[in-house]
């Protein structure tokens, strides 16, 4: 009789264990709010008009205004170049990971999917990354750019927070779409011959 009671209790506890771990707790946890990082940046150009051969500074200050970000990315792309070469030099950089240089034709993530959806890059870019980035922490990414051709020199800048859980997890929120089908802010400098 005592044995039977122990067996009965054991099976009851086991059933409760499976119900809790497979059904109840998973739904509870899935209902908790996900972290929403909110990246933001401000970029300044030292000169809007330069003469060919001269350089200008491009300074970016980025911040995470939302929740803790597992990864905070600032991407700077150069649609008028085929190679970054010695046109772009990094002056200041305080992200936690080394900058990553993306070359033309490289497979890259798209649609804010973090690499699940991919495309091929059409122009070079430099990605600055911090893993993780706490809220309200500023990061700096300053470039010295010396265009080699006259005309309009464009720079695309965007910032993405991962987990990308909302439309607030990228900046800018709208505007021009780049080769990754992600929004960018466009900055231009006129390079006079």
């Amino acid at each position: 009789m005592k044995k039977l009671l122990i067996y009965f209790s054991a099976f009851a506890i086991l059933s409760l264990y499976f119900i809790l771990t497979v059904f109840i707790l998973p739904s509870e946890f899935l209902m908790t709010e996900q972290l929403v990082p909110e990246p933001y940046f401000a970029a300044t150009i030292s000169e809007n008009n330069i003469t060919l051969g001269d350089s200008f500074r491009f300074d970016i200050v980025s911040v995470n205004n939302g929740d803790y970000a597992d990864i905070h990315i600032v991407s700077v792309a150069f649609p008028d170049l085929t190679m970054v070469d010695d046109v772009v030099k990094i002056n200041t950089y305080d992200f936690t990971l080394s900058p990553s240089y993306i070359h033309v034709g490289e497979e890259i993530g798209s649609n804010y999917s973090g690499g699940v959806e991919t495309t091929f890059s059409q122009y070079p870019s430099i990605e600055a990354m911090s893993r993780p980035l706490k809220p309200d922490v500023q990061t700096h990414f300053d470039l010295l750019i010396t265009p080699k051709e006259s005309g309009i020199f464009n720079i695309y800048v965007k910032s993405i927070g991962i987990p990308h859980t909302s439309d607030l997890s990228h900046y800018p929120y709208s505007g021009f779409l780049d080769h990754q089908n992600e929004y960018v802010s466009v900055y231009s400098v006129s390079v006079n011959p």
């Binding site: 771990t21 946890f29 597992d70 990864i71 973090g114 690499g115």
Partner: peptide, 15 residues
Amino acid sequence: LVSPSLIYFVYFELI
């Protein structure tokens, strides 16, 4: 894509 803060969401989604 599973970043560290999403680990348990994906885990429970799959269980």
